[in-house]
Design a protein around this nucleic acid. Structure first.
Lengths: 141, 141
DNA sequence: CTTTGTGCAAACGATTTGCAGGATG
DNA sequence: CATCCTGCAAATCGTTTGCACAAAG
């Protein structure tokens, strides 16, 4: 219950009205460790009973992105995934199963951004690793 | 003219039939320093006279990707961009104008991949820088 | 001649939009 | 009670597909 209050406070603090649908979208995203698409969130919420419409999920995700509570992740063709982990981190993308895992910032040190071509004002960066995840490795052998 | 022969040889070497349309798509991509979408390539080719249909451009790009002459670049929502530079390199993505620039591999050294969580088999990686490009910086001031 | 590529139009899937009614602060 | 959000359905955008014809090796 305290968890829920925290979510409500967070939404309010960002100037977003707290509606059941918006709450549900954000809570769902916080709850997952993967990076779901809008459609996955939608069907997840409506699993047992219909709670949100398609367009509401889309607008909610957009609103959450705008205030910085959620970020878009673009690692795959055709779909846009969402991530409630907005702390800077990297991604690992499995070539076999498509799974996307977060890589903690500290686990990948040593990028020297200051060396980049002058003229470009770099505000942030992230590393995308591609390869084969543990599950797929054992499945393949 | 030698340039054109080189393209033809490259396509043949990859086992692709050399058709005027496919040639044009690949030549166009090699010619540009940006990372056009399929639609941009299409309209570019048909600028003066119609040379290729929509579906042909899409299938050509797909064929070129499959043989490794072109790579997909996913840095923006909704569209898939293409890049004829298949040497490993990084990308800079301007937040203001959306421009995407290649960053040479050597310009960004020091990522220590071996330190990443064990279990993950990393085959490749790339860094995405985000910020403000030179043109936008001067435009904003 | 066999195989592969092209072009058209229709199909598709993800996302967006217009608008009327409903809930929130 | 003014504003913002929701839900529906239709619209849109990028991309894919089916199929008949044409071109390449």
């Amino acid at each position: 219950m305290r968890q829920q209050d925290a979510i409500i406070q967070t939404l309010k603090a960002k100037g977003l009205r707290v509606t059941p649908q918006r709450f549900a979208v954000y809570a769902n995203l916080l709850d997952r460790c993967d990076h779901p698409t809008a459609e996955q969130v939608l069907s997840d919420l409506n699993q047992e009973a219909p709670t949100s419409s398609q367009s509401t999920v889309y607008t909610s995700l957009q609103a959450l992105c705008e205030v910085g509570l959620v970020r878009e992740v673009l690692l795959e063709e055709g779909v846009c995934r969402y991530d409630a982990n907005v702390l800077p981190h990297h991604h690992f993308c499995c070539r076999c199963c498509g799974r996307i895992e977060d890589i903690a910032w500290e686990d990948l040190q040593g990028v020297s951004i200051d060396r980049v071509r002058s003229g470009l004002q770099v505000e942030s960066y992230e590393v995308t690793l591609r390869g084969c995840c543990e599950q797929c490795q054992s499945a393949n052998s």
